[in-house]
Design a protein around this nucleic acid. Structure first.
Lengths: 342, 342
DNA sequence: TAGTAGGTTACATACGTATTCACTGATTTA
DNA sequence: TAAATCAGTGAATACGTATGTAACCTACTA
């Protein structure tokens, strides 16, 4: 049976240990030197009293909330979900909590909505996920302030905020090259949400790879998607209804690739025998579906972790000069079961 | 450009409005009567100073954190995701924030892990989701304490905590009856995770419906799943490999039903022509896949909302006697495209 | 006119921690 | 040997809000 302890305070610990509150405080954050002997006495007292620091008091005194705002748009996307998991975990490790801010389409005025959220929750820092990583509206608003911010997968690198990203164009190039190497020349592409920088980067890589091999790309092989299942399904159907149907489809993310698999089923097209499909992200769905999706593995969890570290370092004034403030992570191709050699 | 205001305090507001802090405080929480005129002066001062209350100070003074712990096990499940969205939204409306606690399999000792979490974050109340809604370990621990708790979809109703649930047995009964009415008599069932009360309730409803119609249920028509995609896929394959294959499969949740669709595809079984499939929950995936899944619609968002309201009411001492502390919500069958009449 | 009840406001203190400043004794430096 | 540095510690105060207690005012009653 659990009883919220009649909360002993730092005062009590100090008294029991026979030292001052100052010393207790120092032991807790072990920043400055404290004699081993004293330290032990304090630790014992803490254990005996089951003392746990009062977060509110700590926040008030230090004027730090130990809260990080996590801005995202669409929680149902596998990508954002993974990002969230990684960030949450690392934030906890570093002693911070997350405030989740969903700024989706229902919000008319993004910047004023953000302003309200920030004022209400008094966060110490912000993590921006796509598409907000590149939202001029938000970036400009944040630029003049003194609220530490880090961005995940931004395209524009002319803002002063540190970031973590991946060479998405090169990854898309490599994946396209892989399809070509397997003998595909008729390759359809389902673009991502136009607000997301990644959509354009991935498309650019795709186009570049085709051009490098001298392969032509008919307009009707390009369909617009929105990064979600529904739009991917619709786009895939259009490609499949083409008279000169592509032999492979490159969807700009895994959710749309999964939808493409469903569409193939509806059209009685076996994957990969009748049509090959590849995605991007290596979100959980990639290995949940059948057949398992060939895709670009983004180290999403690691990116989230690093972004969190970057931010917390900045918050703690440990702007380590060894750690670059702009990081580009490695990717790899996850070759699985949805591509057929021709 | 956003600048964190050099934070004006209640003191400043009081001075500008020519009243005492006490009055400002009262205006803010408008519990007690304040003269209209005075109120207006205060509001004007607040607006002019862009005053926002300091949460830390408020928490410290009132010894309330305005935090609710949301305990869950598997965030990837569509069901929990929806629950989270609903809870988060309503918590925000009521002026509370959520602390997300994932107590998954990686934690050896659930109750001590919970104890630590509670001590560390000092939450005001707890929301329990399945399977924790029925965890004796957790319930017993909480029972003796004075930490308000509400449960979502519990089975055991002999604990003193208010809850929100649905008649899952009856819903499963109805869905099974529907399949029978469509002419199915050979119906396979994929059970859910045994730790979740819902698994058993749903199974019971299924069995009861068959028995009511005098339909026999061979042992090999029952497969154990774990509520996730992978387990659902494996279970579905076993059913499909049966010599006397069922004509319909009832999966205990939508994730497993979606997996069943994939498995059907792998086995070249058209849905619903060759085999019918139904799920339970009406999670987002139900309408994301093709064909759209026939399933039991649980009002997940509403349940989350109500649970949050129940908890907050208790926290604010508004234990409204009109509002029952035990709520059973309505469900309905979402008849879509995965069932064929025989 | 005095008394009274009820509505409205002011003062002062508590909440638990972080932190500035000052102090001691010990060790090193010139 | 005197001065300077330094590790280790303590006392006191600030942080911004909530709230108990007491005082105040208004209007109404007797």
């Amino acid at each position: 049976m659990y009883k919220k302890n009649a909360s002993s305070t730092m005062q009590d610990v100090a008294k029991l240990a026979g030292v001052s509150m100052m010393t207790v405080s120092r032991v807790l954050r072990n920043e400055v030197k404290v004699k081993e002997n004293t330290k032990k006495k304090v630790m014992d007292a803490i254990k005996k009293l089951e003392y746990t620091p009062n977060i509110s008091a700590r926040s008030l005194a230090s004027s730090k909330s130990h809260l990080i705002a996590f801005l995202y748009e669409n929680p149902s996307e596998g990508y954002v979900g993974q990002l969230l998991i990684g960030t949450m975990k690392q934030a906890q490790v570093r002693g911070y909590s997350l405030v989740l801010n969903n700024l989706d389409g229902t919000v008319a005025d993004v910047s004023s909505a953000l302003r309200e959220l920030l004022e209400a929750s008094r966060v110490d820092g912000i993590i921006l996920t796509p598409p907000f990583s590149d939202s001029e509206e938000i970036l400009d608003m944040l630029k003049g302030g003194h609220l530490p911010t880090v961005r995940i997968s931004p395209q524009r690198k002319d803002y002063p905020f540190p970031f973590v990203c991946m060479d998405e164009t090169k990854a898309a190039f490599d994946m396209t090259k892989y399809l070509i190497d397997q003998g595909h020349t008729k390759i359809g592409f389902i673009k991502g949400h136009p607000d997301h920088a990644g959509s354009h980067l991935r498309y650019d890589g795709f186009v570049a790879a085709l051009k490098a091999q001298g392969i032509e790309l008919p307009d009707q092989y390009i369909e617009q998607g929105m990064f979600n299942y529904q739009s991917g399904f619709a786009a895939a159907e259009k490609l499949m209804n083409l008279k000169d149907r592509p032999t492979a489809i490159f969807a700009a993310n895994d959710d749309m690739a999964a939808a493409t698999l469903s569409a193939a089923q509806k059209h009685h097209l076996a994957v990969p025998e009748a049509i090959s499909v590849v995605g991007f992200d290596d979100a959980p769905i990639a290995t949940s579906i059948w057949p398992r999706l060939t895709t670009v593995r983004q180290p999403i969890l690691e990116m989230a972790e690093m972004a969190t570290d970057l931010l917390v370092d900045e918050l703690m004034g440990k702007r380590d000069l060894d750690k670059p403030r702009k990081n580009t992570m490695d990717y790899q191709l996850a070759i699985r079961d949805t591509v057929q050699s021709l």
